[in-house]
Design a protein around this nucleic acid. Structure first.
Length: 450
RNA sequence: GGCGACGUGGCGGAGUGGCUACGCAGCGGCCUGCAAAGCCGUCCACACCGGUUCGAUUCCGGUCGUCGCCUCCA
């Protein structure tokens, strides 16, 4: 079990992972609001934290990974109204899409995927506790968090209250005691078809409170890693942290880990800007392997451009391992593998540096290719498996049809007679059938064209 | 305006006070009938200007530029 460090937004530095219980790690990553299908940008935290979980498991930790789904929200009401369906129906449909789309990433599911709509009693209890402690108040059926009652507000996102744009206007502005206050609960409005009863009236939870309640419920307080996109640092995570600490006097999480944004045309991929690329379309276009490779090619905290060139490079990288697979054999790896294996996992232990880890994997590939003889695959399988890419080393068993085999035989005959024109023609015929011929000292080999 | 991040070779992308990152693409070579795959080599990289230092791409200061957050957003 290596010492694992990760960049913590609160302290602004790399922090060693120090679990509450040795060997046990809780991860909470904020998931999507389900009013439409998720785009590739939404998939980044899903991928990053799923892979982080795999790595921590590899290091011997028991990991509890929670990724919530926000299924009650203004935008869901609006989208449902526009579509002429109930908000529950829309949320359920989009949740199903989200699960199906992220399933295609082949990373398994998080251990828990709580829905806001199913955590209402816990949410209401948390709000009541905040009211009792003087950190929240009710106004016309809304409940607000009193930001100035909590002296640490701003510490996560490193802002001073004076520096915040205290934008007037916006809903609830007249009911707030202070422009900085944010909604814990919103009173039901006409046309909103999903609402729950509380001591202060009918309504539904604000956005930030659900995460405080869910994380506490499923992971406890002061849990190890709270993650999400960097755009959530403020106000979402700032507010989560404030709510929980104001209510319990304990931090919500020990480390705050934020992934960088995906960009499309030099700009953050975002639903509000409208420059999104849907996850399921990206999977259709590039395949799951290239997409995972793409995500691993850059450090999780850096922004990355989403474009064809980057994806094409990821595909080439994928191909390199697929080619290598033909020269591997089951069993332990040679002695030269050990330092590369160590470098691979050390890189991941230092702020989850996937590009550096991949460099070690590529170095491994070069070394294996150099050796000329089949190489024991064990170490590389172990390495790539942490990135959920071990399948690249599994050579697909694809039996060439008799027709192709026949053509290959004819081509061998032609080659034996040095009839190169005929041999090349037969190669083209095979290509038309979807098979590539590769001549080797052991004879021709047929491989399906990608 | 406030806060933060970042500027590395054709592209992507790590990293370090002095030593080859790595991948993709290109070029040359080896292998091959030709290819493909693979291997070898090659392509004078660290935005700019100062400073610290024996020595800076790496530390400090400034300039320019890009991006993110400050409103819903992964």
């Amino acid at each position: 079990m290596r010492e694992v460090t990760l960049h913590d937004t609160l302290s602004g530095r790399l922090l060693p992972l120090r679990p509450r219980e040795p060997g046990t790690v809780g991860i909470y990553a904020c998931g999507p609001t389900v009013y439409g299908r998720v785009h590739v940008g939404n998939a980044r935290p899903f991928v990053v934290f799923s892979l982080l979980k795999r790595f921590l498991q590899h290091e011997g930790y028991a990991v509890n990974f929670v990724a919530n789904i926000t299924d009650v929200n203004d935008k869901i009401y609006a989208a449902a109204a526009a579509a002429g369906v109930s908000s529950q129906a829309l949320a359920a449909e989009m949740t199903a899409h989200y699960v199906a789309d992220t399933d295609r990433l082949g990373l398994g599911r998080p251990d828990h995927e709580p829905l806001a709509s199913q955590m209402i009693p816990e949410i209401v209890a948390l709000i009541e506790r905040l009211i009792e402690r003087g950190h929240a108040y009710v106004a016309d059926g809304d409940a607000y968090f009193a930001v100035r009652s909590y002296e640490r507000y701003g510490e996560l996102s490193h802002r001073r209250l004076e520096d915040l744009d205290q934008g007037e206007g916006g809903e609830g502005a007249q009911r707030k005691r202070d422009p900085l206050d944010f909604a814990l609960w919103k009173a039901q409005k006409p046309g909103e078809d999903t609402a729950w009863q509380t001591p202060w009236g009918s309504g539904r939870p604000g956005w930030h409170i659900e995460c405080s309640a869910m994380a506490q419920e499923l992971l406890g307080l002061d849990f190890e890693i709270h993650g999400g996109g960097s755009d959530l640092t403020f106000p979402h995570h700032e507010n989560e942290a404030a709510q929980t600490r104001a209510a319990y006097g304990q931090p919500l999480a020990r480390m705050w880990v934020h992934n960088g944004m995906l960009r499309l045309a030099q700009e953050k991929m975002s639903k509000s800007i409208g420059n999104t690329f849907m996850l399921h379309e990206a999977l259709d276009a590039h395949g799951r392997d290239a997409l995972i490779m793409y995500f691993c090619s850059g450090h999780y905290r850096q922004p990355v451009e989403f474009d064809d060139e980057r994806l094409a490079q990821a595909s080439s990288n994928v191909r390199r391992f697929r080619e290598l697979a033909h020269r591997l054999t089951p069993g332990p790896s040679p002695a030269w593998s050990a330092p590369l294996r160590e470098e691979f996992f050390s890189a991941l232990a230092e702020d989850f540096n996937t590009p550096r880890a991949l460099a070690a994997a590529f170095a491994w590939a070069s070394e294996a290719n150099r050796s000329g003889t089949p190489v024991g695959e064990a170490d590389l399988v172990e390495m790539l498996d942490v990135l959920a890419l071990a399948d690249l080393l599994r050579v697909p068993v694809s039996e060439a049809p008799a027709e192709a085999l026949e053509l290959a035989q004819q081509r061998e005959a032609a080659r034996a007679q040095r009839d190169w024109a005929l041999a090349d023609l037969l190669r083209e015929r095979l290509a038309e059938l979807g098979w590539e011929v590769r001549d080797s000292p052991q004879g021709p080999e047929l491989r399906p064209l990608a």
